[in-house]
Design a protein around this nucleic acid. Sequence first.
DNA 1: ACTATAATACTTGTATACAAGTATACTCGT
DNA 2: ACGAGTATACTTGTATACAAGTATTATAGT
Lengths: 244, 244
Amino acid sequence: MLNDTNDFLYPEKWLSKASTGERVACELRMRIISGLIESGTTLSENKLAAEYNVSRSPIREALKVLSNENLIRLERMGAVVVGLTEKEIEEIYDVRLLIETFVFERLVKNDTAQVVRELTKIFEMMQIAIKYKDADEFALQDVLFHETIIRSINHSYITMIWNNTKPVMESFILLSMRMHFNEKYDDLSRIMKNHELYIDAISSKNREIMIQSLHQNFDDVQGKVDDLWMSQQMLSKAREQEKE
Amino acid sequence: MLNDTNDFLYPEKWLSKASTGERVACELRMRIISGLIESGTTLSENKLAAEYNVSRSPIREALKVLSNENLIRLERMGAVVVGLTEKEIEEIYDVRLLIETFVFERLVKNDTAQVVRELTKIFEMMQIAIKYKDADEFALQDVLFHETIIRSINHSYITMIWNNTKPVMESFILLSMRMHFNEKYDDLSRIMKNHELYIDAISSKNREIMIQSLHQNFDDVQGKVDDLWMSQQMLSKAREQEKE
DNA sequence: ACTATAATACTTGTATACAAGTATACTCGT
DNA sequence: ACGAGTATACTTGTATACAAGTATTATAGT
């Protein structure tokens, strides 16, 4: 109905106790970021409600959420899809760099034993995810890793920023991981190395290592951008074929 | 009905083409930040709808907004007011410092003539607001000043952060300005001096001056925190008297 | 007096209904 | 053929209705 080849892009198991509105938001987000819904498209509440077989209430809720995330622009008549270009991806990582730097400066003033413990656990979960080639789980843990760092300083407004950027980041990483999880083991080991570096930096409170790992992050992002671009290409090709 | 002595805290003229939901959000925000609605209170959609004589739809919308701003926590039964303590105010200014520093680093790479022009205009508007003792207008222009700086670099996610922090900041500054506008002319001139410094820093692209003005900002905030505290005291006294 | 259970009153989430406004398309007059 | 104006089909914003679930209170049994 929505898309013959791939009804739901967002893992349903992550939506166990989510409301209809959240589900729609997650699904729409994935469809926008993956390029399945092209930038510039105008979405109508009624059409979406019909498409997803729900009422306008949850649709409105979802659109508000996506609007907060800068994925759509709520206009007088319809919601215009903004989408995620390379520029936006760079910008979202600007923000992550910004807040993670801030968080690090706070972290080094406190006892980091607890957070290091948590991060190590997540790190090991990521290894298991790799072992069983579970791209979705890996993406989930990857995002959780950074979330754990950010939330550890109990800064309500930094947490707020994270909450607003997380969904887009999560969807983006999810798509990217699905794309190259099975082939590019080199990249994965590089990502794991970098996460190890993060833990080291926090554990030793060493600013130099932190800067190094943040920089490596940028390289990872570049890879992810390429992946997303590939993903969007593939999806649009699939769509073309569907039309035929 | 809402409050015998002061029906609306948020300037109605700023809500000319706002929806009911936005109005409710603005009003509730002011009531929470001013301390009229105490932290820990549980708000119910039905009660709010009855109180404001509107349906639950705009109330729900407003609560979602306030939840995004960390002023309330949406729980299973009711929305719990978090409020704005000194800690949160410090944190919101952490964020502003963070993003304004980031913006400055971007700004110095571009031509700043246009933004300097805009800032100068706003600066003059602020002077007029002082001249006519219009605290609300002054607060509006003050917020607009920073918004202009932040939006000037066209960074969608930095703008997003601004959009999410702006309402709280605006309400906070509004209350603070109303509190001491008539007495403390010294503070006002200090604020104006600081804004002049901001313009100088951007105009000359001088990092030293920028840091100086950002630091002065902190002093201003300290004053504002005192004002808010005073304001909350006064309002709660007024409430006590009302009860008698 | 106290506990367990049942009834009740409240909560949110979703669906539907309605009103006001806007863009599109069509018709009529020239 | 073409422009003005109207009709129509859409849009959102708000109100209301309903359903499912939760906390509270009252009641009954011991």
